[in-house]
Amino acid sequence: MTQDIKIRVANLNFSYRDRTVLQDVTVSFAGNAITALTGSSGVGKSTFLMTLNRLWENVSNAQMKGTVEIKLQHRFRDIYAPDLSVTELRKMVAMVFQVPNPLPMSIRKNVAFPLKLSGERNRGFVGAKVEHALKMANLWDEVRDRLNDDARTLSGGQQQRLCIARALVLEPEVLLLDEPTSSLDQASTAVIEELLIGLKDRLTILIVSHHPEQVIRIADRVVEFADGTIVSAPRT
C-alpha cells in the first residue's frame, strides 16, 4: 500500500447559521486506502465530506474558511481555486449518500447519467462503461437482464450499489461515502464492504461510519471527530 498523501486539509472552519460545525481542522489522507471517519452523530463528519467536493455550497447560510487541496491528475490542486470548475471537481471526487438516491430512470440510464453530463454520445462506449462500472460495483450479474427497468424497483442494497456504480463510471480519484450502509441489512452491508475493499487499489476512499465493527473490518486508517474537530488521526 502506498503512503502518498492524496488530500490535505488545513485550518478548515465551517459554520452554519452562525453555529460552528467544524473548527480549525487540519488533516491529511493517504491515497489508495480506506479511511474511516468516526465519532458520534452531529460532530460534523458529513459536513466535512461535503467540503471535499464543495457540495455544501448548495446550502444557504453556510460559510467555510481554510484550504483543501486534493492531488488530482498527479498534482495538488486547491479545489476552491477559480481555475477548477465545481462540476469538474465533482466528477473526480465522487460521493455516495446515506440513503440510496437513484434518479427516476432506468438502471442503465442511471449509470450512464454522468457520461451524459460529460457530453459522451457514443453508444457502444457508453454501454461498455456502464457494464464495467456495474461489474466494479458487483451488481452486473444481478441486473444484466433488466437494465431497462426503473432503478427504483431494485432492493435497497442493490440501489446503493447502483449509486456506487454511478459514482465510479467516470473513474473518479476519490470516493466519499456518507454512512452508505446505515439504511441496509447485514447481508447487503457485507456485499458493499467487500466491494469497497476491492476498490481501494484504484482510488482513495473516505467513509463516514458509525459502526466500530465496520471500521475494524474495512478501514486502513481511522480519523475520529468530536465537537467539530479531530481528536485522533494517524500520522501521515
Partner: peptide, 12 residues
C-alpha cells in the same frame, strides 16, 4: 435526493 444526486455527479 434527486437534486443531490445530480449535484454530486457534477451536473451544471
Amino acid at each position: 435526493t434527486y437534486l443531490d444526486a445530480a449535484d454530486a455527479l457534477g451536473a451544471s
